[in-house]
């Protein structure tokens, strides 16, 4: 399998003009090597994830109810989605959640990573503490945050009254504020997770660049903008994409904090899919909603992908 030393240097990065036949052989070889790297993972991935997802796509065009026959219904499920008020509500709620949660989480977790990338005493403890929300039982999280958000006795509202806000929000009991409360808890829970990724990314920022910038008289903020951020771009891309997808898929937190309520004010897309599938056994219809979610994610991801490519050229 190993390629020879003689061939290697003439690889893509420094393309030397080569005779066409040689080039196509090279291309072929590169393709083979590329695939040989990907294949071990792809075997498992393709069979165990891709195949069921292809089945899911097929099911979105049927009226499958898990048992018995799955009759082809064409685009009927998608047409029904268009007219389904709950679906519309869940899409809007999901977008609302994501629009708040993504920037907030990036800002907080990046800030945290920058802070805990310093050499300070007890950094191991603080890093671990930041990760604890992610591994604490979600029921415990819900109970304690519900206490904090309690409209009448909660510390949050007491503080708000103290600083002169006469009518603080009803948080989880109010249709207007419930989603914001969920965003706050979501950010609190996820920041440790993304902090880990940023911490790993920060290790790639060459110290020399920082030092050079400092010598040039750049302040902390300038160094952050001109050195740290550009070096972090691959990590940032990764975090943004993952965060987008995970925000679009938000499920368990909603389930334990509000169950989609009050009314439908925090109903999100994955919950809609779960209800249609497992509560109402309309798996064909649920699959169509999952496909819609897939395309929402893909569109955003492709945009990020293209933007990232453009920036890195």
């Amino acid at each position: 399998m190993a390629i020879t030393a003689a061939d290697a240097p003439t690889r893509v990065v420094t393309p030397k003009p080569a005779p066409p036949r040689r080039r196509s052989r090279l291309k072929m070889r590169n393709t083979l090597i590329g695939w040989s790297f990907i294949l071990p993972n792809f075997l498992g991935f393709g069979l165990l994830t891709l195949v069921p997802i292809v089945v899911l796509f097929y099911m979105s065009f049927t009226n499958w109810n898990i048992f018995g026959t799955a009759n082809w219904v064409g685009l009927a499920n998608f047409q029904r989605l268009m007219g389904d008020g709950s679906f519309r509500v869940s899409v809007l709620n999901t977008l609302y959640y994501s629009a708040l949660h993504i920037p907030l989480t990036i800002a907080v977790s990046l800030g945290l990573a920058l802070l805990l990338n310093n050499k300070i005493r007890g950094v191991a403890f603080f890093r671990t503490a930041a990760f604890f929300p992610y591994i604490t039982s979600i029921v415990a999280i819900a109970v304690v945050w519900n206490l904090l958000f309690s409209p009448e006795f909660g510390p949050i509202n007491e503080f708000l009254r103290f600083i002169g806000i006469a009518n603080p929000p009803g948080w989880l009991t109010s249709p207007d504020w419930a989603m914001i409360a969920v965003v706050i808890v979501g950010t609190w829970r996820d920041m440790g997770y993304y902090m880990i990724l940023f911490l790993a990314g920060l290790q790639t920022v060459p110290r020399e660049l920082h030092e050079a910038a400092r010598v040039d008289g750049a302040g902390i903020w300038q160094r952050f903008v001109n050195v740290t951020l550009p070096c972090l771009r691959p990590t940032m891309f990764f975090v943004t994409v993952m965060l987008t997808i995970n925000s679009f898929k938000i499920f368990d937190l909603i389930l334990v904090m509000t169950e989609g309520g009050p009314g439908q004010s925090t109903l999100v897309l994955s919950q809609f899919i779960y209800r249609k599938g497992f509560m109402e056994n309309q798996f064909g219809y649920a699959s169509a909603a999952a496909v819609a979610l897939f395309f929402m994610c893909i569109v955003v991801t492709v945009l990020q992908f293209l933007w990232n490519k453009k920036r890195s050229i």
């Binding site: 292809v54 089945v55 099911m59 799955a70 082809w72």
Partner: peptide, 12 residues
């Protein structure tokens, strides 16, 4: 275009 689910899974 009627198919048993098993057949649908089968194509994959």
């Amino acid at each position: 275009m009627k198919r048993k689910f098993a057949a649908a899974a089968g194509f994959a």
